[in-house]
Amino acid sequence: MPISAFLTDASLCIGCKACEVACKEWNEVPDDGFSWSGHSYDNTRALGASTWRHVLFLEQPHRMGAQLAGINEPFRWQFLSDVCKHCANAGCLEACPTGSIVRTEVGSVFVQPDICNGCGYCVVSCPFGVIEKRPEDGRAFKCTFCYDRQKAGLIPACAKACPTESIQFGDLEVLRLRGKKRVQNLQERGYSDARIYDPQETSVGGIHAFSVIFGEPEAYNLPPAPEVPTVYLKSAWTSAFISAAIIVAIVCAAFAI
């Protein structure tokens, strides 16, 4: 089966939050609080156990291509729908001690709710801060990539509901090519800081839900160089074994004298 992917295009997003609504309704995700954040039109704030799509609202003192903002200072208002990245090397999947988190046949990272026992290790192992434990339930939740819909030959609810095709769903390689072309096209049209966010050069090894963004990824709270935490295992264990050897030597010395 081909690898499924999302291409989320900030240049097409209008911030309507249809994806958030569609995701919640289809997946029966509970509410994530009703409160005002004061951060532009974003009252969702971040991805979490009960937020599997999150529309970001960026207010930046930069020109957006040739657009005029209507004020003297350079200004742009940007939107981007964020989602679980379904990493090629997923920190949560590697960390899961129960085998609840698995890689599906479409290449997505899926939490089996009937296996998860809520140990919380995936939460600290996600370099994107996506997966979270739902306190009232006890288990960890995140985007399922609409695995149920994909099994039935349907596209994910968010992509289906997106009115501008800012969320595109399809084969990974096809979408990577489309994203590349889109960025080229945007740059030719004067959007000089358009780029793809897909950290392929780090240990994460690329993501299956990548984006077209403007400017630095930090502004979207996207880590510029995320690492899958298993890369830290070797040095940590080496230190543990050396320390253990020294500790044993100390204990031997203490009882020898």
Binding site: S37, H39, D42, R45, A46, G48, L56, L58, Q60, P61, I71, E73, F75, G120, V123, V124, C126, P127, F128, G129, V130, I131, E132, K133, G215, E216, P217, E218, A219, Y220, N221, L222, P223, P224
Partner: peptide, 30 residues
């Protein structure tokens, strides 16, 4: 606000600032 935010929000060697200073990671739940 825009004038005063010009300098901290400008791209630097460190890159752009974060998204409204919100956490980019989930805190341990233990």
């Amino acid at each position: 606000t825009l004038a005063t935010q010009e300098s901290p929000r400008k791209p630097s060697a460190q890159g752009e600032q974060s998204y409204y200073g919100l956490p980019a990671l989930k805190a341990p739940v233990w």
